[in-house]
Amino acid sequence: MSVTEQPRKYTVKDFGSDQDVRWCPGCGDYSILSAVKKVLAEEGVPPEQYAFVSGIGCSSRFPYYVNTYGMHSIHGRAMAVATGLKVARPDVHTFVITGDGDALSIGGNHTIHTLRRNVDITILLFNNQIYGLTKGQYSPTSPFGKKTKSTPMGSLDQPIAPMALALAAEATFMARTIDMHPKHLMATIKRAMEHKGTSFVEIYQNCNIFNDGALDYAQDRKVRAENVIELEHGKPLLFGKDLDKGIVFDGRQLTVAQVGENGVTKDDLLVHDEKDSESYHAMLTRMKYPELPEPIGVFRSVQRPTYEELVNGQISEVIARKGKGDLKKLIEGRSTWEVREEGA
């Protein structure tokens, strides 16, 4: 990062572009945009040090609305574009803005491979369980049986679990948050940005036009406490309005237990550990409403060298060992011969 003058303070305005925001009024994307701009202003890093790359979909218009470098690429491919950018420019903090269709359907392959490479980028996946920009077809996260324009009798596809997919793809950072929970949203984005490696953030986002209320159980403040569980490293898995319910592991699976009943105390509850084993994280990814409360917050945060470090590391290593490339020798190759002038 090329640090120039003295550090200065930035405001939300510094990160807003001059373009009119064209999302539908009431869309959950507004609150995510606002949270991102607030977090960036707090970071104190100048706007030119950021790049936002997106694919196609409602969420993917995001780069136009932040005054940083940005590319609104093609459907599903933002992570591939961002990977190239990050390998070429490890100094640029790179975000990928994507949606459930973009990242899990048409671009599913890139999601898997970006995660396993651990490219140091921040992925914000806006999950609204619907195709909005194409006006309301079911998405890879829509529940089985979902009735939409393309599935008048109900969809026949089992929904994908983004977190479970990320874990299977060797993600080093996975978190989930909610558009209508601004404090949690901002804190999660901040954590994701701090992580060195691919950070994968699933954001529950309401599409108030084509799928309004689909995520009410998690978004609506009146019921949220009963249906989601806020993960905190080192703290027991507690939830409920009065924080009187918890998660216990019965040796085979996770179940809900009422604290204070049947002899269950807080000590019997599972304690969240971001660094703990994959099998524990795997169980978290499978927790689904209504059977279980759904976790939000940082599921997993572990360290592994980043892809761009490794790519550039191999280059430095070879140069340290053999010196910089000699173009003359390269062009000459291994063996040459000379043709002399006739009679010479």
Binding site: S73, A80, V81, L85, K86, V87, A88, N109
Partner: peptide
């Protein structure tokens, strides 16, 4: 697709 998209991303970054 990732091959060309990553190359394009690298070009955006100046490679």
């Amino acid at each position: 697709i990732a091959a060309i998209c990553s190359a394009l991303g690298a070009s955006f970054g100046g490679a």
